[in-house]
Simulated assay, not measured.
Amino acid sequence: MTFGEQPAYLRVAGDLRQKIVEGLLPPHTRLPSQARIREEYGVSDTVALEARKVLMAEGLVEGRSGSGTYVRERPEPRRVARSGFRPERGATPFRQEQADIGVRGTWESSSEQTDACVDIAQRLGIDPGDRVMRTTYLFREAGEPMMLSTSWEPLALTGRTPVMLPEEGPLGGMGVVERMRAIDVIVDNVTEEVGARPGLAEELVLLGGVPGHVVLVIQRTYFASGRPVETADVVIPADRYRAAYHLPVK
Rank of each mutant, 00 (worst) to 15 (best):
E97Q: 10
R240E: 10
A48N: 08
P75V: 15
S225Y: 08
E5C: 01
M147S: 11
C117G: 14
A91I: 06
L49F: 11
S67G: 02
L138D: 02
I101E: 10
L10E: 08
G84K: 05
R104L: 15
A182S: 09
R11P: 00
S65W: 08
G199I: 11
L206M: 14
V12A: 06
A8V: 07
R36F: 15
T191G: 09
P27A: 12
Y137N: 05
A81P: 14
D127L: 14
R89T: 07
E203N: 02
E141C: 09
M180Q: 03
E62Q: 10
K250D: 15
K250Q: 14
P87I: 00
R242A: 11
R82E: 12
V215D: 01
G66P: 06
P26K: 12
L24H: 05
Y241A: 12
P162R: 01
E192C: 09
L216C: 10
P27D: 08
I120V: 15
L204I: 08
E178Q: 11
R240W: 08
S149W: 01
A238P: 00
Q34N: 13
K53C: 15
T29A: 14
L60E: 12
E178W: 06
I20S: 06
A51Q: 04
A51R: 09
L204R: 01
V205Q: 06
L55P: 02
V234K: 04
G173P: 03
R78S: 00
G199T: 07
R64N: 04
S111E: 00
S109K: 00
Q98G: 04
R179F: 00
L16N: 03
A81R: 15
M56P: 04
V71I: 15
G102W: 05
P237S: 06
R197V: 15
E141L: 09
R86F: 11
M1V: 09
F223A: 04
L216E: 07
R17T: 13
D119S: 13
E108S: 13
P166L: 03
T29S: 14
P27M: 14
R86L: 06
T135W: 00
S110C: 07
V118Q: 09
E112P: 11
A13V: 07
L155F: 00
M147P: 12
E230V: 04
I120Q: 01
P75K: 11
Y222L: 02
V176D: 05
G102D: 00
L31I: 10
P93S: 09
V217E: 03
A116G: 04
G175D: 02
E40Q: 15
I186M: 05
P228S: 07
A196K: 03
S67C: 08
P162T: 01
P166I: 01
V12N: 01
E144S: 11
A156G: 07
A238L: 10
V21Y: 09
E58L: 09
D239E: 13
K53L: 15
P7I: 05
F85T: 12
T221W: 13
D115R: 08
P27N: 10
H28P: 02
R78M: 03
S83H: 07
E203G: 05
A232G: 10
Y222H: 14
T136Q: 08
P7S: 02
L157F: 00
A201E: 15
R242V: 13
E58I: 08
P27V: 14
L138R: 03
E230H: 11
V217Y: 03
V185R: 03
G169C: 04
